[in-house]
Simulated assay, not measured.
Amino acid sequence: MKIVQDDLTDPNVIALVRAHLLELAGHSPEESCHALDLDALRGPGMTFWSVWEGDTIAGCGALKALDDTHGEIKSMRTAGTHLRRGVAAKLLDHIIHEARTRGFERLSLETGPHDLFAPARSLYARFGFETCPPFGPYREDPYSVFMTRALDGPEDYNAPSKSSCRQAS
């Protein structure tokens, strides 16, 4: 598998992002859906990656700079053809490494509370993310679970994180 920084112009990438948005829209009311569309994923402070196996799209994800020390994971998605093949773990490892390289001290994310999102929450927990209060522009919402981790912890993501669950702003 190969991870590449992406400009979101490839039809396969566009289709994956659109499928992601369509599925998420079915699980939350519009005011509680925080998934980003293509224009937002191309916006300032955003870096988007796609994961490829040969010529086949395997997944995608993005890193949004909230400020100089805090980043947010956005639009993590594994293509249906590549579920349970390590795509999300490989991409999450890449995003965490990139966040560290950029000098971020904290990395956070918002995901859903439904069973559909249980594998994602489990993956994030395995990488040291812990539930936390809303951060940045988010507010308490029954359709959201917020998670965060400090980036001063060990590189071994299967080990418990040294992060504290404090509100990050």
Rank of each mutant, 00 (worst) to 15 (best):
M1T: 05
Q5H: 09
D7N: 14
D10C: 01
D10H: 12
P11T: 03
V17T: 00
A19E: 13
H20Y: 11
L21V: 00
G26W: 00
G26Y: 02
G26R: 14
H27N: 13
S28P: 02
S28L: 08
P29I: 08
E31V: 11
E31A: 15
S32K: 10
C33M: 06
H34Y: 14
D37V: 05
L38I: 15
D39I: 04
G45V: 10
M46D: 03
M46F: 10
F48C: 06
W49H: 12
S50T: 11
V51L: 08
G54P: 06
D55L: 01
D55K: 06
D55P: 03
G59N: 03
C60D: 00
A62D: 06
K64R: 15
A65T: 11
D67W: 07
D67P: 11
D67Y: 07
D68H: 13
D68G: 08
K74G: 07
R77V: 10
H82A: 14
L83A: 02
R84G: 07
R84L: 07
R85P: 01
R85G: 05
R85I: 01
G86K: 02
V87F: 02
A89W: 01
I95P: 00
I95F: 10
H97T: 14
E98K: 12
T101Q: 14
T101F: 04
R102H: 09
E105S: 14
E105D: 12
R106F: 11
S108A: 15
L109M: 15
G112S: 11
P113I: 10
D115S: 14
P119N: 08
P119G: 04
R121A: 11
L123T: 08
F129M: 15
P133I: 00
P134W: 04
Y138C: 14
D141K: 09
P142M: 09
Y143D: 14
F146R: 03
T148A: 15
Y157Q: 02
S161E: 04
K162E: 14
C165S: 15
R166D: 07
A168S: 10
S169V: 13
